[in-house]
Amino acid sequence: MKFLDLFSGIGGFRLGMEQAGHECAGWVEWDKFARQSYQAIFEIKGEWNAHDIRSVRFDEVPRADCWCFGFPCQDISVAGKQQGITNGKRSSLFFTVTQLIRDTPKESRPSYLLIENVKNLLSINRGFDFLKLQIELDEIGYDLEWSVLDSAEVVPQHRERLFIIGHLRGRRTRKVFPICQNCEEASEANRPSTNTLTTRYSEAQGNGSYVVEGESNKVHQIGNISTSKSFGGNPQIGRVYGTDGLSPTLSTMQGGGREPKIAIPVLTPDRIKKRQNGRRFKTNGEPEFTLTGQDRHGILTNDLRIRKLTPRECWRLQGFPDWAFDRAKNTGVSDSQLYKQAGNSVTVPVIRAIAEQMEIEEANK
């Protein structure tokens, strides 16, 4: 099956789709640094591509069975101004894509749409924005199914995202959701109420498995180094996480010191016998007291320490193999951009799990 990679970023959609056996017909990305990484990662010679979706004409777009796009979430995310898909300057680009489909003759429209965005799209503006999205896609001929999937099923990062599948009426496309564990053994009575992914990502080059199971499948925050003045007063940026749980959801992490921070809480190294402000000491391995910028109690300064995730680790948390990171890094793109690119990407194994369920009957291809 051929697909278009719109708002492609560094190619998370593409890598997952290709791992499922599908073929890229073209891509669109406006950010020059993301384009730089994308072109280093993939064999793009001779492929159709464009810089700005707003300048693309329907008659220049190569025909494809599926259009993949995670349209900008800045106006939808709870971290943004929440202007929504109609009033938001960035998130309203959703309608730029649907206009391209409107302009495209029906026989040339994609059989599938694979759309990704933040979970808040379901509830922003009291749910009316999601209703507008459904109406828009219904008007251009698509029946929908959707699900919120957590990347923690396949990588050690808690990242809930909404995935929408559009099925063009008249084409015999395969239903995708639910993607669940042991579906063949589950009856309607005991079928899981939330979708869980069966795919378990393992890097072929030997980086190990990202399998996460059981009670450890949680984000474990052990403290916070934010003060009222640090990081602009944003407590989220100063959160410190233990190594015994999942990573928090990666964001674009723009600005200094915003990367996720990891610490291993241990017995206060330099005050073995004294209590601090009446609080008891932690034993080795217990959750740490709240951390501040001035007080490093509970952290071994000469060994184990607070540290931020490296760009490579952030790419791994999104399911990218090391060879892909190395190709992007070797172009000279900055660490700041590498962090941003990881935060903006989709999780590759999630896309692969979805893509493996997508199929069009041969007679309709």
Rank of each mutant, 00 (worst) to 15 (best):
A25H: 12
E43H: 11
P349A: 05
Y241V: 15
R171L: 12
F42K: 09
E259T: 15
R159Q: 02
E215C: 12
Q254N: 06
G12F: 01
T196K: 15
G298I: 04
F33T: 10
W323I: 09
S92V: 01
V240A: 05
N302G: 02
H22M: 06
R159E: 00
R161G: 04
S91K: 06
I140N: 01
N284A: 11
H297Y: 00
Q205W: 10
Q205M: 06
R35H: 03
P62W: 10
E288Q: 06
L162M: 04
K175E: 01
D335Q: 15
N182L: 09
P235C: 14
Q236I: 09
S147I: 04
N182F: 03
A204S: 13
K229S: 07
I264D: 06
R90H: 05
Q181I: 13
L267E: 11
L250K: 03
K273S: 09
C183F: 06
V148F: 03
S92I: 02
I115Q: 04
T283P: 02
R275Q: 12
T173P: 05
S209T: 15
E215F: 09
V266T: 12
T347Y: 11
F325W: 05
N344W: 01
E215V: 14
V155S: 05
L6F: 11
K308C: 05
G26N: 03
Y142R: 05
F325Q: 02
F177W: 14
F320Y: 10
T290D: 07
S92F: 00
I115E: 00
Q83H: 15
I41A: 12
G343R: 11
R305I: 08
N125K: 14
